[in-house]
Every structure is written in C-alpha cells, then in structure tokens.
Deep mutational scan, measured.
Amino acid sequence: IGSLMYASIFGNVSAIIQRLYSGTARYHTQMLRVREFIRFHQIPNPLRQRLEEYFQHAWSYTNGIDMNAVLKGFPECLQADICLHLNRSLLQHCKPFRGATKGCLRALAMKFKTTHAPPGDTLVHAGDLLTALYFISRGSIEILRGDVVVAILGKNDIFGEPLNLYARPGKSNGDVRALTYCDLHKIHRDDLLEVLDMYPEFSDHFWSSLEITFNLRDTNMIPGSPGSTELEGGFSRQRKRKLSFRRRTDKDTEQPGEVSALGPGRAGAGPSSRGRPGGPWGESPSSGPSSPESSEDEGPGRSSSPLRLVPFSSPRPPGEPPGGEPLMEDCEKSSDTCNPLSGAFSGVSNIFSFWGDSRGRQYQELPRCPAPTPSLLNIPLSSPGRRPRGDVESRLDALQRQLNRLETRLSADMATVLQLLQRQMTLVPPAYSAVTTPGPGPTSTSPLLPVSPLPTLTLDSLSQVSQFMACEELPPGAPELPQEGPTRRLSLPGQLGALTSQPLHRHGSDPG
C-alpha cells in the first residue's frame, strides 16, 4: 500500500511539474524568437521594450494561443456562430445594431475584428487614413492633437468618421493612444458598406441611429477645401490634362476667341504652333527640309505637354522668318557652300510665315494684346468667377478644330508651292551661260556676264508674291485673308516669265 501511494503521488507530481515546464519551455522559446528578432533588426531601446511588454501581456492574456488560427480551423457556418458569440456584447448593447435580422448580425459579426491594445500603444496616428470604424468594449483611450489631450473615450464609445457622408476615406486629425488595456472591435469601411448593401432595409436605420462619439476626420483635408492638395495627390493619381488660365478682364471677355491653345513656353509662336517648341509643326519652317525628324516628334510632343491658354504674339512682318533660324542665316552668309535649293526654301518659309499670320487673323479676328503681368498667370479653374468647365471645354474643342483646319490648309498650300517650284525647275534647270562666239564683223562684242542661278530668282519672285499679296490685293481696312490656291498659281508664272525669257546656255562643266 505504501509503495502504491508513493507511486501515485510521485507520478502525479511529476506530471504536474512536467506540464509546468512544458508551458515555461514554450514561453521561453517564443521569447527567444522575439529577442532574436530584436537583435537581428537592431531595434532601439524604447521600441524594444514595448515589443517585450506586449509579448508578455499577450502570452498571459491568451496563454500563447493564436485565436485567429484556431477560429480559421472551423467551417464557415461554425465561424459565424463563434463570431456572433464573441461580439454578442457589442451587437446587443450598441444602439445602431438593434433591430437587425439574424442574418445581418451574422454577416456583421464575420466582418468585425477584435484588437487588444496595451497602455501607451498608439492605435491611430495623425494623418493616417481612416479605413475603419472603432467600437470600444473595454478600457479607455485618449485622443491628442500635438501634445494636447482633446478627448478621453471609454466603454461603448465610437470613434472614426461617418462613412455615409464621404465617398473616400479621410485623414485623422489626431493621435489615438490607449490609456489602459483596451479591447476594441473594428470593422473596415469596405466590409461595412458591403453588408449594408446586402441589407438595404437595415442601412437607413443604421446610419440614422449611429452616433460617433469623436469624429477623427480632418475637415481641412476634404477635397475642394484650401488644404486638400495632399489628399488630392493621394487619391487622384490618374489626373486628366491640367489647364491653367490667364485672368480675363471685362474688356477681354467681350471679345470671342481671344486665346489660343499652345504648349508651355510657346507664347511667341504662331497660331498653328503645336507639339515641339520653336515654330509651326514643332520646328522652324525654314529647317523643315533639312530635319525630317521633326514630323516624327510632333505626335509625342503634342500628347505629353499640358495645355496652356495664352494670348497671341505680336504680328510678324511678311518677309521675316518666324524666328530662331540660325540654319538659314548661316546659309545666307556662306552662300557659296550651301545647297542652291536652300534659297528657294527660304522664300517658301517667308510665304508660310505670311500665310500663317494672315490665317491666324482670319480665324481669330481680334487685335493683338500685350501679355498680362506675371502675377495674373496660372489662375486655377476652381477659383470664384471662372467660367463653367463645359464652356471652357467647348472653347478648347473649337480652337482645336480651327487649328486642324489651319494645319490642313497650310499643308495644301505648301504642296502647291512645291509643285510650282518643281515645275519651274523642270522647265528651266539651273545653269550658267557659256561665252558666246564673236560675230564675223570687226565690231565684236565682249563675252556675256554669267546669269544668276535660278534659286536666287525664285527667292526674289516669291518675296514679290508675298509683298504683292500682303499690300496690293487686300483693300484698305479689310481683314488680311489668305489668297486662294488658283490665284497664287496664276501669279507665280507671271512673275517668273520675264526672268526666264532670256536664252540660257548650259555650261560645259555643268553635270545637269
């Protein structure tokens, strides 16, 4: 009997000691992992102490058991019943959930998450997105703005933001810190809205009876308010094209079509300037034949640059190039080494500058006005007194259609001029006259002087055409309008007829 009692007592005591040691061994194993994590990542002392304290409290609170892992091991129907039991206190005593059906309560219970916070733990920081609604079931918390405590909340209090009033989550206007050990039930806004969409009859009752104890939403960050730039940057990543407008005076608003859609830094370009900076079609017209890549860069430059609305530039004389043409100036200075066709295309550029300027006046029909002061630039669209967005969009579309028509007509005119030049060069190729044979009589004449090349004649003739079109064909006081194609086609051969009437002889060394 004594040996039996000794064996039973010894066996029970050893089993008890073994169970104690097993729990202690698990605790030390998990604690060792936490300390190894702290050492590996070199976490500083204040945060390291918070980690160790939280682990110790969580171990004593749950005995080292992962409740979520245990809950996920059950089937979904059983999980709903378990969640309904775990959140029964909240669902029974909170006013917004009263009167809900059994199915609605089960769906809500599945969406709730339980959070346990030790003292000093910050649940929400200032500036964080308010993605959830919090219900306090135990403990107390404090809300701070800077170093000032603005509120202390306790059991059955609710904090967050009214989700039904805002389409997008706002930002917190303060820090939420736990004063004691707290148990909180939180539900994400997407989950709550999903359940309320499934039960629309409960939705009206819920929003009407929901009383948020403390609204954390920062009202200064609401979209459309003066301080909402940061919020707009976070939620409006896919922005449309940006529009900046110059201020319109009362006198300017009476004149229709007073602005032109141009790229940034293009205030001095012609009315047909689009795409790359520098001139019509993204580059100076005089350098068009020598740089074919300008047409390839036109599309990307047009689509990537934001639109700006600026006044037209001052008018340019008909014979003056659009500006920024070092290529043609070098050719004029060193005409001995340049291609003979460069002079002809220089005359073509003069005609283009004249036609572009006159067509700009035809479509816009307003006098040039000086540029406004820099303080009046970049007025935002949302400022008071601005035109409605639809009106601005319609004006932009009208300007775009005008620019497209202008570009089409300029292309047709350019093709006409090039065809005339090619026809003239085919009839009378460039050549130098040879020395004529002296006559049989004693009164022999001296050799004839060489005839100037055709490109120079073409430049003079085209300059005469531009001056003739600019000065004589337009009646005084009438708006400057571009001439039609047949009129220009008839004027060019008439001007060139006198020049080509002389018999030109080919030089023996000319390969053409």
Rank of each mutant, 00 (worst) to 15 (best):
P438E: 10
A151N: 01
R302D: 10
Y166V: 07
P429A: 15
K242M: 10
A478C: 10
E142K: 06
L421V: 07
R386L: 14
P476Q: 07
Y199R: 02
Y432L: 09
R401M: 10
Y199M: 03
I152P: 01
S228R: 09
V392G: 11
I187A: 02
G227R: 10
V417E: 04
T249G: 09
R239W: 13
M328V: 13
E325L: 13
H205G: 08
G356F: 04
A478Y: 15
G288P: 06
P223K: 05
A178Y: 01
S383R: 06
K333A: 12
S394W: 15
L406I: 11
L496K: 09
P317K: 11
T408A: 06
R368Q: 08
T458N: 10
S203M: 11
A498P: 09
L406C: 05
H505T: 06
H185A: 08
L184W: 01
R189Y: 11
F159Y: 01
L449M: 13
Q467D: 14
Q362I: 08
Y181C: 03
S358H: 03
N220Q: 13
Q419S: 08
S383D: 15
P374A: 08
L418N: 01
R368H: 12
S466H: 10
I222Q: 09
H185D: 03
H185W: 04
H505I: 13
L399I: 05
Q467T: 11
G288F: 05
P476E: 05
P289N: 15
S334T: 04
R248S: 09
F354P: 08
S291Y: 04
P162W: 03
F202C: 11
Q238D: 10
D128F: 01
E254A: 10
P169E: 05
K333C: 07
P226H: 09
G233R: 09
F345A: 12
P223C: 07
S463N: 11
V150L: 13
R189M: 10
L377M: 10
F312T: 10
E298L: 06
N220T: 10
S334F: 13
P280R: 15
P315N: 05
F214T: 03
G174A: 12
T426V: 11
A412R: 11
S335V: 12
N404V: 14
P479W: 08
L376K: 14
L153W: 01
N215V: 03
L492A: 12
I187Y: 02
D190Y: 04
P374D: 10
F135D: 02
L474P: 05
A434E: 15
L449V: 07
L165H: 11
G497F: 04
A371W: 09
D190H: 07
L454I: 10
V451E: 10
P326V: 15
I143N: 01
P285Y: 12
Q502F: 05
P311T: 03
I212H: 01
K155P: 10
G170H: 01
S314W: 08
G263N: 09
S208T: 12
P430N: 14
G360E: 09
Q402W: 05
T229F: 10
R246F: 09
Y199A: 03
D175T: 09
S291G: 11
A415P: 12
E161A: 03
L262I: 08
L231T: 12
S304N: 03
L421T: 06
G282M: 12
S303M: 11
S287T: 04
S272T: 10
D336E: 07
A470F: 04
L341G: 07
S334E: 07
S290T: 05
L481C: 09
L231Y: 12
L196F: 10
K171P: 05
G439A: 11
S433L: 08
L457K: 08
G497Q: 13
G139S: 01
R387N: 12
G270M: 11
I379L: 06
Q424R: 10
D157S: 05
S346P: 07
M198E: 09
Y432E: 11
R361V: 09
S137H: 06
P326E: 13
R237W: 07
T456W: 05
A269D: 08
N404I: 04
G224Y: 10
V348K: 12
L309Q: 12
P292L: 10
E232Y: 13
G160K: 01
S375E: 06
G347T: 06
R361Q: 09
E472F: 06
G439D: 12
L184P: 02
P476Y: 04
Q402T: 05
S501C: 11
G139H: 01
E473Q: 08
V392Q: 15
R189F: 05
Q364V: 07
G170T: 01
G146R: 09
D397L: 07
T443Y: 10
G324Y: 01
Q238K: 11
P226M: 12
G139A: 01
A269L: 08
F235E: 12
F206Q: 03
G497W: 04
Q400E: 04
V148H: 08
Q255C: 13
G268M: 10
A371G: 10
E298G: 11
D190I: 07
V148G: 08
G497E: 09
P256Q: 10
E230V: 08
F159E: 02
P306I: 15
P340L: 11
S444C: 09
S463K: 14
S452V: 09
S314T: 07
P169T: 10
R246K: 13
E472N: 06
P223F: 05
F245T: 14
P438A: 10
G270Y: 15
P440N: 05
E332L: 12
P447H: 08
G227P: 09
P162M: 08
L153K: 01
L421A: 06
A478M: 15
S236R: 11
D297F: 12
L420A: 10
Q419M: 11
D297E: 09
P256L: 10
I351T: 14
N164Y: 09
P317E: 13
P340Y: 06
R308K: 12
D183Q: 10
E142A: 10
S244R: 12
L376D: 09
D250T: 12
S286T: 06
S291M: 13
G268Q: 13
T229N: 11
L421W: 01
P264V: 11
S358M: 01
L341N: 07
R246P: 14
T213N: 09
S260K: 08
A344G: 11
L366E: 09
A431V: 12
F135M: 03
L196P: 03
G512W: 01
P318K: 04
N350I: 02
E325N: 15
T229E: 10
T131P: 04
P440H: 09
H505M: 06
S314L: 09
V149A: 08
V348W: 13
Q402M: 14
G127A: 02
Y134H: 14
N350F: 03
T249C: 10
R387A: 10
F245W: 12
L129Q: 12
A431W: 10
P482E: 14
L366A: 11
P442Y: 04
R506P: 09
P162D: 06
V176R: 02
A478L: 10
R177I: 08
V195M: 03
Q364M: 15
C338G: 10
L499P: 11
V148W: 08
S313T: 10
S452H: 10
D147C: 03
C182H: 01
L179N: 03
A267R: 08
Q495G: 12
S444D: 14
D147R: 07
P315C: 09
L341T: 15
L243T: 11
